[in-house]
Each structure stands twice: as structure tokens, then as C-alpha cells.
Amino acid sequence: MTPAAILHRALAEPESMRGLSADDWNALIRVGRAERLLGTVAERAVPLWDALPAGAQTCLTEERDITRGDHLAARWEIDRAALALRNVGCPVILMKGSAYLHAGLPAAQGRRIGDLDILVPRAALPAVEAALLAHGWLQAKENAYDDHYYRTWMHELPPMVHKERGGVIDVHHTILPLTARLKPDADALIESRVAVADGLFVLGPAEMLLHSAAHVAYDGEFEGGTRNLWDIHCLASDFAQTPGFWDRLTEATDRHQLRVPLSRALRLARRLYGTDVPETLAGRMDLVDRLALRKLHGRDRFGHQGAKLSDRLLYMRGHWLRMPPLMLTEHLARKAFRRKERAQPV
């Protein structure tokens, strides 16, 4: 069993933690921290808490405290953003961790939450940005190229950071970069919204799952894939309890052109966590799946991911899907030059 598989199993079948050796625990703690999933492991371990070794209890308790702090901070960021945006006159839709938390979904249990992600109609972007600037958020990117990159080609504004709290907000107007080959229907995403507390919204169940799937299986190189696929597993297992969900999901998938990434995400979640998925939606394993699985099992017992050829191929694929070839060449050249300037003395 790979060190990563110990983590996958601990999440999907918490009872498996009863039989772990000290070496296994040390590996689980490292890989869990590296994947930002140890807090979730800790929540999953609660029913068998007394059977865990003391050293594991210590680390898991600490992780629960860290997650609790994260959630407290995330709730406050949500609250402040709601206040700043209440007079803008457009729906404000929470996304990812903050959405799971605010909507009380099982996917939020033990989940680390970093930046606040929101979705608003594209036409409202100037008003939203102005309102955030007026309420203490600042542009985090000072580099003119970065600013241009986000505004022209991406699906979000350049990230903004609050000048006192340091919280980062990402304001999206759709769920994939504008330069990507697939074009989800942004209006339909916003249309799908469901009201939650404080005048805020979250995406409808199908769209929420699609966003998560697009994020893990299309936009990027499966970085953080273990966590994102756990999100997929939790969302799919939760929503599937509502009759007719898979049909509505299929319909939404076709509208947003997201069949390929959705199927891939569901296949990989099933492979890692045993997610119950209809065969018609799962489709068949392919080369990208295999590369992704290699990466998802790639960490050693210290949580370190070696740079392997399969990871490089995924990186290239991620960027290939993200933007057209000429643009990609220029973008990577700029990033390569910049990397040299970034390192800090100790």
C-alpha cells in the first residue's frame, strides 16, 4: 500500500485506522498534512477515538484545533464580504470551502479553508471590485503582467487581500479561464443559485459538483487532487440522496460542456474513495487518469512528492487546456524568468 493509500483508506473507511502501526501513523500524518486533509481524517476518526494511539490523538487533536480556527476565520471573512457587498445589487454566490461551510454540507467537515471564493455576474465585476476596495481590500498583485493576465484571460479578478485581516478574496465571473477550450454557461451557473443565510447564495447541487469537477479534472495539474476528489466524493454522496440528482447532473453537464472533466473526476473519486457513481456518467479510464493516479499516489512516507515525468506531463496538459499554444509559450517564458527572482535568504 502506498503512503497515499493509507490516507485514502482512512478517509473512506475510518475503521481502517484501528489497525495502523506507528510507521503507518507517521506516514498518514505526513501525507495527510501535505494534502491538507489531516483535519478531515481527525473528524472521521472521532467515532473510534479511544482506540487510537496517544501520539495519533495528539496530532489529530491539534489538526482539529487548526481546522476550527480556519472555520472561525472563514465565517468572519464571509460575514465581512456579505456586509461589503450587500448594496451592490447583484447575487453573491459563495464557492468551494466557504460555500460548503456556510451551507452546512458534510464536505466542510474538517476541511481546511483558505481564500474566500465568490461568483458574481460578469457585468457586476466593476461594482463588486469598487465595493471591496472601499471596504479595506487591496489588490494583491502589483505586477502589471499579473493584473493583465487575470483581467483579460482568467475567470476571476486578480486576488484581493484585506489590509487588516490579511484574508484573500477571489472574485469569479465563471468557473474556467476565458482562454480554456471548454466554455461553461456562466449565466446558467448564476441562475442555478440557492439562497443560504445572510443574503448569500451557493451554486445549485449539480453546478456545485461541476465546479468542483472542472477544478480538479480540467483546470490545473491535479495539484491538491486528493483533497479536491474528497470534495467530489462528499458532494456526490450527499447530493445523490436526493432522487433525480444524477439526471439533473447529466443535463447540467451537457449544458456546461463539462462531460469529460465530470466523468474523470467521478472515476478518480470512485477509484480513491469508492464513490457510488452511475456507470453511464463514469465512462472509462484513460491515459490522463493513469497519470493522475500516479501523481495521487506519488507522495513518500514524509509527504514529499518527487518531481516525476508523469507530473510534468500533467503540468503540460493543464497549461495546454488552459490557453492557446502561442500564449502559453509567452506565459511560461515569463514565469521561468520570474522564478529566479523570488527566492529569499534564510
Binding site: A22, W25, N26, P53, A54, G55, C59, G303
Partner: peptide
């Protein structure tokens, strides 16, 4: 050593 062989944090100089 620790009581049960589980340690809190790993730090590597690679």
C-alpha cells in the same frame, strides 16, 4: 524516542 513511536513533526534537510 516517543512512547508509542509516533512523532509530531518531520523536518528534513534535503
Amino acid at each position: 524516542e516517543t512512547a508509542d513511536g509516533i512523532y509530531d513533526y518531520a523536518v528534513s534537510a534535503v
